[in-house]
């Protein structure tokens, strides 16, 4: 696959390197230093950085503003956009706003339901869904058109991504659903956090059987766990998460003060194993409020230094 946009992430992938992305959650306030500090920690260890969009429906600094901060620092941001809070006018408008700062990556999501967040009494929008947002960005980029049919002056140049959860139910449609996202226009996929490696490998096999690995870059999602408590919480409380008992048991088997290191080790081992899986094009390391551990994970898995592209 050859790069179609100026996205650094796309160029790394198109050159055949294993890509590394990470994510930063914007602050619940307006301090620009929070994002800058997180970005500073990881910038030499990743190709692109996702900025989450009011994740878990908690009101935060907007993804677009935080992406602009990263862009001005010289990073390649991935603008996460959920369809929960904005209609098609606002989504297209924000895409153009991002494009005006030469933000070259977008991740199209539906977003957690607002009942999880701090505005549970609010409306949700869902004018279009995540697949239709993929189609929208592709229409804007490839055809230079708005949804309303008019021409866009200086269309956005965005590498278009989507999320996939290989573990959500029903399992039998996980691969058809991926195929649907690819036909809607997804060029890269960042997966849900992977703890059940066997199931993920089965999903990869099923997607390869349909030749999807030749149509879309799969970045395997990984989140190091800080404690056995976090492992149990993710297993029981986070929708769509598959944490096998042996992972929880392994975390619980070490003394509390060593559990964080154990979590990092599990993450490093997972990357080493998944590197060998055909179709895995890179890794999306989501160290939630633990960005300082990203360099260690990237170094230990031999993914540092990041390749120079251009």
């Amino acid at each position: 696959m050859t790069a179609k946009t100026p996205s650094r992430l796309e160029k790394v992938l198109a050159a055949g390197h294993l890509a590394v992305t990470s994510e930063c959650g914007p602050p619940r306030g307006s301090d620009p230093e929070v994002i800058a500090k997180k970005a500073e920690m990881i910038k030499d260890y990743v190709d692109a950085v996702n900025i989450t969009d009011n994740q878990t429906s908690m009101t935060r600094m907007c993804s677009l503003a935080a992406c602009i901060r990263l862009k001005l620092m010289g990073l390649d941001p991935v603008l996460q956009m959920v369809t929960r809070d904005r209609n098609r006018i606002a989504l297209q408008s924000d895409i153009l706003g991002a494009a005006s700062f030469d933000i070259h990556n977008v991740l199209c999501l539906s977003g957690d339901h607002q009942s999880f967040g701090d505005c549970a009494n609010g409306q949700n929008v869902h004018d279009i869904d995540s697949m239709q947002l993929l189609q929208t960005v592709r229409l804007m980029r490839d055809d230079g058109k708005f949804l309303g049919g008019d021409d866009i002056k200086r269309p956005p140049q965005m590498f278009v991504g989507a999320a996939a959860n290989p573990f959500a139910d029903p399992f039998e449609i996980r691969v058809p659903r991926l195929a649907k996202k690819v036909s809607a226009g997804a060029e890269f996929i960042q997966t849900q956090c992977i703890y059940n490696l066997d199931k993920f490998e089965l999903w990869m096999k099923m997607m390869r059987d349909r030749g999807l690995h030749e149509k879309v870059y799969i970045l395997a999602g990984l989140t190091p766990m800080k404690s056995a408590g976090m492992a149990r919480y993710m297993k029981k409380r986070v929708p769509g998460m598959d944490v096998p008992d042996e992972v929880v048991d392994r975390m619980a088997a070490v003394p509390k003060e060593q559990q964080a290191q154990e979590g990092i080790d599990i993450c490093v081992e997972a990357i080493e194993r998944l590197k060998e899986v055909e179709g895995v094009a890179g890794f999306h390391v989501m160290a939630i409020e633990w960005e300082e551990k990203v360099p260690e994970i990237v170094e230990r898995t031999g993914l540092h230094p990041r390749p120079a592209v251009d």
Partner: peptide
Amino acid sequence: AKRILNGPCGGST
């Protein structure tokens, strides 16, 4: 809950 026309979302368990 999200009136998604191309569902399900990742939250279906």
